[in-house]
Simulated scan of single mutants.
Amino acid sequence: MDARYTRTDFHDGISRYGASLIEACAPLAEVTMVISDEAQLALLPGGVPWVRAADPTSPAEPFIARQLNRHRPDVVFSPMQTMGSAGREYGLILTLHDLIYYRHRTPPADLPAPVRLLWRAFHLAYWPQRLVLDRADAVATVSHTSRRLMRRHRLTSREIRIIGNAPQAVPAPRDPEARPERSLVYMGSFMDYKNVETLIRGLAGLPGYRLHLLSRISAAREAELRQVAADARVPAEALVFHRGTTDEEYVRLLRSATALVTLSRSEGYGLPVAEAMAQGTPVVVSDLEIFREIGGPDGGAARFVPL
């Protein structure tokens, strides 16, 4: 199991997805984790054997199979599609979570500059993705929505299996009779397609509410969003930037909030939405096909906002 996308501070979506799959698979099979930094072990299941290999953003990635072959794996599962495969002597399963970057081509800012350049070029056409995915023996994705889009664009001739995201186990949902705080929770990145600006502007119509923005954020991006709030006459104290949070604090905020909110223009899954519903927290989301898949088409578990 390729665990090299695991973070060393706190989980993001890919990091939690990979760690959760390892935890689920370890009791069922002989699992070995592939890491690139021993600090990743802090956020991975304990007691699972591991080996070390090159970082997935390093120039050695196309030839990572040379490092893995010596361990004689039967199958390697990667939670991403970019794992190198040249010269592999094992079965390979790659994962494509979504097709977001074909519509929103700006790559994540935390990637090295050469990787960002390749990322943008890679998503200018569909054929590079076809070449990448057809290197595998099978392909995984996280939702019916993503699988339908992959088939529409003929991204692979391989079998596509759904291995969905899932929230962490919850002993019991919050008390539905308890009065919530006048607060909203946003968990996710601050890339343009996430449409966080609209959430902030919406606070102008919700006096007394606070919007908790939980993920890490650069100082420059935070300044941009604070300016959006100022232009919309939203009080500065209505925005609470956590700049990263613990799982415990995340759960506490979910269980006390009025709702989790996201008005993203594109999503591959939307794990925070499922996490909020598991806690019994209402969700208000943009009217996307994937959110209908998660929240139910009749709106029973979510309230949908047209974009």
Rank of each mutant, 00 (worst) to 15 (best):
I163V: 15
E159T: 13
G84K: 03
G164R: 12
I93P: 00
L96C: 11
V51A: 10
L44T: 08
D110M: 12
Q129F: 07
S146R: 01
Y90P: 03
A125W: 03
G46P: 00
S143R: 11
V48P: 10
V31N: 04
R88Y: 00
I93V: 15
P49M: 11
I163A: 13
R120M: 06
V170R: 11
P79N: 12
R116H: 04
A121V: 06
Y102P: 02
M83W: 02
P49N: 10
F77H: 15
Y90V: 04
R116N: 03
R120A: 13
T95G: 05
R135I: 00
S146V: 01
L149N: 01
V76L: 13
P73T: 09
E89C: 13
V75E: 12
R52H: 05
G46H: 10
T141P: 03
P56C: 08
E61C: 11
A109S: 15
G84D: 04
R116T: 04
A121K: 06
A166M: 05
I163Q: 09
I35D: 01
Y101S: 14
I100W: 04
A136S: 14
H144F: 04
A54N: 04
Y102D: 04
L99I: 05
A121I: 05
T106Q: 15
S36T: 10
L68H: 06
I93W: 01
V170T: 14
R174M: 04
T141L: 05
V115Y: 06
Y126D: 09
I163W: 15
A60W: 06
L149E: 14
L94D: 00
T82I: 06
A136W: 03
A60G: 04
